[in-house]
């Protein structure tokens, strides 16, 4: 390679390396702020090395799995409350409004709202998360024992709430 090109190549590579280092330092420093949500154990036990916990009254997002048999609905209004967990402790989420189609027990959700007690979130928005697995309903039933719920069926969500009310 002729020296002029070698010099230019060195410049270009050091430019990319410099930017890559700068960006990784920025992202590392912002690490906790880039997370979309707190998990329930981070809300209750603290997050990161210094175990910072969100304050009561703070506006946060909480993400976790909806605990089985924890969904309770008010039959008269759109009020609903349920518990979320990530393997560890559980939190209660209160919400008034229409839940997304994918919302069901055992499903991952992200709720945004105000922490009104250390473990209670008054949500203004509930979003459903889904994982990266895709399979036909028959296969899901055979492999995971999941009963297929057609999200388009009108009675798709009354069932888990109905189960919850009986207990």
């Amino acid at each position: 390679m002729i020296p002029r090109r070698k010099k230019r190549l060195t410049w270009v590579i050091s430019l990319i390396a410099g930017v890559a280092v700068a960006v990784s330092l920025i992202l590392y420093a912002l690490n906790q702020n880039i997370d979309l949500f707190y998990t329930p154990s981070e809300v209750l036990a603290g997050k990161g090395k210094d175990l910072t916990r969100p304050q009561v009254g703070q506006r946060i997002r909480v993400g976790g799995m909806v605990v089985e048999d924890s969904v309770r609905r008010d039959p008269q209004t759109l009020q609903v409350h349920f518990r979320v967990t990530d393997t560890g402790p559980e939190m209660t989420v209160l919400y008034t409004g229409i839940l997304p189609d994918l919302f069901r027990e055992g499903q991952g959700i992200v709720a945004q709202g105000i922490l009104i007690e250390p473990d209670v979130l008054q949500a203004t928005e509930v979003l459903a998360k889904h994982d990266e697995e895709y399979m036909p309903p028959e296969l899901a039933e055979a492999m995971k024992g999941i009963k297929h719920v057609n999200p388009n069926a009108p009675d798709a969500y009354s069932e888990p709430a109905g189960d919850g009310d009986k207990q």
């Binding site: 992202l27 690490n31 880039i34 997370d35 979309l36 949500f37 998990t39 993400g63 992200v110 979003l127 998360k129 889904h130 994982d131 990266e132 697995e133 895709y134 399979m135 036909p136 296969l139």
Partner: peptide
């Protein structure tokens, strides 16, 4: 993978078997 997101993880662009039927 680095942060928790609303978006799902990778289904096919990973070294393991794709998580798709």
């Amino acid at each position: 993978y680095w942060w928790n997101t609303l978006h799902q993880g990778a289904t096919i662009t990973k070294f393991e078997k794709p998580s798709m039927a």
